[in-house]
Design a protein around this nucleic acid. Structure first.
Lengths: 205, 205
DNA sequence: ACCTGAACACCGTTCAAGT
DNA sequence: ACCTGAACACCGTTCAAGT
């Protein structure tokens, strides 16, 4: 009679960082954000709550790891067609991945410029856009200055050989000295897009 | 010696729903989301935690009310110029308001289609866009089907005289039968916008 | 290296009771 | 109508200790 089988639920895989993150995602998917607690995940593995702290520093780090796991799952489709078709491709794959874990989606966006999987995606997107500066999501737009300072510091420490475009765009991506210019780009993006679609609707419809 | 002055902090305004919401926003602004707890707000007013439950059903309702307060603060600038200039105007005012309460920004977006202040804003925006269907934020895009069903039911119960455009667009705003079409619109918006800005850059730069 | 046990300082919320 | 007191069932996390 091993002590584990007494308390462990159905799937009694070994405890590990990846296993915890994966289980946390599935708990969040099925039971919502409030259900993912350290204690709950512990009993999911038939283990003491404190056992998790060996694999994960704290809950904040766990949530970040969940976001990174989503982004790591976004693999761009094979490159065919013009740049905007490829761009549409990655965005659609990203949306598909976020749709598979709706409640965890908002964990992914703030990680885009702060983690390896996120930066891989950003670098790929910026490669397609070449000289066009990047536009952040609305959620990212509303983030604190402190966090943005950390982001910039982090971006500036990146190796230029691996992330050339991200580094080039670091200023635009984090600069908030001129807020109106920063937000203005996102607004322009929306307006121009709406106008273009309106024109097309008039043509075809 | 009244018992209140003994425990109340500096500003000892009377307890009320609006006062609680306002104080919650300022606590969130200055000390972050984790600091806004029922117990903390109670001692902010020099009162027992349970006192708040007379004015607010639970914490979830409090957070929703905070989001609504932000949206209620978004007043469109005087209408001048073409429709896209006016649209840019509201969006900029919205962004300005969200910037004043960065940590609370994400409370506002999910309330856009669920509260009176949000619907007022949506109606105004859709009036400008006229026949153009509305595009939701990425955060809203990732919401659950259950919530979308509630939204639709809520939208369909609205008086057609007050919210004609919102009602007309209810289908597009909540329909997820064809996910790809729903998300595709947002993607088109982004792509077309990026292309338009690229063209303009080539012309002027 | 990996996990346990006991404890601390918190949460949101209910329910009966006061005024 | 509006607030209190005591209690319940939870949290995340630390710290010393086990194997």
């Amino acid at each position: 009679v091993t002590p584990r089988t007494a308390t462990a639920t159905a799937a009694k895989s070994d405890l590990s960082r990846d296993a915890i993150v994966e289980r946390a995602l599935s708990v969040m998917d099925t039971e919502g954000p409030d259900a993912v607690t350290i204690r709950r995940l512990a009993q999911e593995f038939g283990v003491t709550p404190m056992a998790l702290y060996w694999h994960v520093a704290n809950k904040e780090e766990l949530l970040a790891a969940m976001g990174d796991a989503l982004l790591a799952g976004v693999r761009p489709p094979p490159a065919t067609g013009p740049w905007h078709a490829q761009l549409r491709g990655v965005v659609e794959v990203l949306i598909a991945e976020l749709s598979r874990h709706p409640a965890a989606a908002e964990l992914a966006l703030p990680r885009m410029l702060m983690s390896e999987p996120g930066l891989r995606l950003a670098e790929f997107t910026l490669t397609l856009l070449t000289q066009l500066p990047g536009a952040e999501s609305q959620a990212a737009m509303a983030e604190r200055d402190a966090l943005q300072a950390r982001k910039r510091a982090h971006l500036e420490s990146l190796p230029a050989e691996v992330y050339p475009h991200v580094r080039d765009a670091a200023d635009v991506l984090t600069n908030c000295d001129d807020e109106s210019a920063y937000y203005g780009f996102g607004v322009d993006l929306y307006i121009e897009g709406a106008q273009a679609i309106l024109r097309r609707q008039r043509r075809t419809g």
